[in-house]
């Protein structure tokens, strides 16, 4: 069948199926299992209301359970087996991995990404939010900075290939170098160590807009009185920003920071399209993809390492959510 037709059929079946499920399951609950009539009417209504939340939640719980919760366990279990999945080797995959310089390098590179990208994106976003705040044409400027968020990482990588290209007639940076009289051209993606930062720049470029939008919302929420009081006390604009505004939006800054950190640990696209993990730029997600389809034991072990790195953020998020809920 033509995939497009199949897609349309899936939309109809999916949406129709959901509507039918929710409608008929409620109907059955109210009319058949616990009918709101007869001698037990009061008890039936109460029982129906106890069951109903689970009817509403069932499809979502199934999706979350099978596609997100089960894999955490299944991945860990699989990572304890060898490549073919037929021999239990305990932590063998992890031990081999930590012994390999390639893995250690991608681990260290990844730590570098986790340190640099969220910090840079949050800082640039905060700067852009403060500068464009209440400025004429500020919204247009924000739109332009926000725009890369709509671009895929593959698209963004291609865009930056035109910046980094090893040819003064294509790559912007080499063109600027030759404008200043430098001889020859440099392949930016092969400069040892620093090429990691050139790749990070791409992710920072796409994520700054996200940070800016959220932080500018938070800046708007800073009470006017606190700023007025500071002005009356003679604070200069920098003091107002760093001592009055930033402390009040600290909570939001942390949210932006952690959200970007989580994203950094997911993105393999940039390294994959720009260097394919060569020239010392491998990171854990791209390292994992190089084992995907080849050695499931190894791939799941890498994935589980990423999970362990994410774990503190996850716990912190849950603690925050619980506190808010109370």
């Amino acid at each position: 069948m033509n995939p497009l037709l199949q897609g349309i059929a899936t939309i109809l079946a999916g949406v129709g199926g959901c509507v039918a499920y929710f409608y008929f399951s409620n109907l059955v609950l109210d009319k058949v299992i616990f009918p709101a009539r007869g001698e037990n009417i009061g008890r039936n209504i109460n029982r129906a209301n106890m069951v109903r939340p689970w009817l509403f939640l069932l499809p979502a719980i199934l999706a979350l359970g099978i596609y997100l919760a089960y894999p955490v366990v299944a991945s860990f279990y699989r990572s304890l087996f060898n490549r073919g999945g037929d021999e239990f080797i305990g932590l063998g995959n992890y031990i081999t991995m930590f012994g390999e310089p390639e893995f250690r390098q991608s681990f260290l590179n990844n730590m570098l990404w986790v340190l640099v990208v969220p910090a840079a994106a949050t800082f640039a976003g905060l700067l852009a939010a403060q500068l464009t705040d209440r400025m004429k044409g500020g919204n247009l400027a924000k739109s332009m900075i926000f725009m890369p968020m709509a671009i895929s990482f593959v698209g963004a990588s291609l865009i930056w290939k035109f910046v980094y290209a090893n040819d003064a007639d294509i790559g912007l940076i080499n063109a600027i170098r030759s404008l200043f009289g430098a001889e020859g051209s440099v392949d930016m993606l092969q400069v040892p160590f620093w090429n990691n930062f050139f790749l990070m720049a791409i992710l920072i470029w796409t994520q700054t807009g996200f940070a800016m939008v959220i932080l500018s919302g938070a800046l708007r929420g800073v009470p006017e009185e606190t700023i007025e009081a500071a002005i009356i006390d003679g604070a200069n604009p920098f003091q107002i920003f760093f001592k009055i505004k930033v402390p009040q939006i600290m909570g939001t800054i942390v949210v932006v920071w952690t959200t970007t950190t989580i994203l950094v640990l997911k993105v393999f696209d940039i390294v994959y399209t720009m260097t394919g993990g060569n020239f010392g730029t491998e990171i854990l997600p791209s390292y994992m993809m190089s084992y995907m389809f080849r050695d499931d034991g190894r791939a799941t072990a890498v994935a589980f390492i990423i999970m362990i790195i994410v774990l503190p953020v996850m716990i912190w998020n849950i603690v925050q959510a619980r506190r808010e809920f109370r």
Partner: peptide, 27 residues
Amino acid sequence: MDFPARGLLIAAVVGLLVVPLQLALVP
């Protein structure tokens, strides 16, 4: 809607929000 385990489910959703996609691929 009011039901037992609601808080637990909300916490679970918040937790699953950050589960790395990579874990899901092989299984």
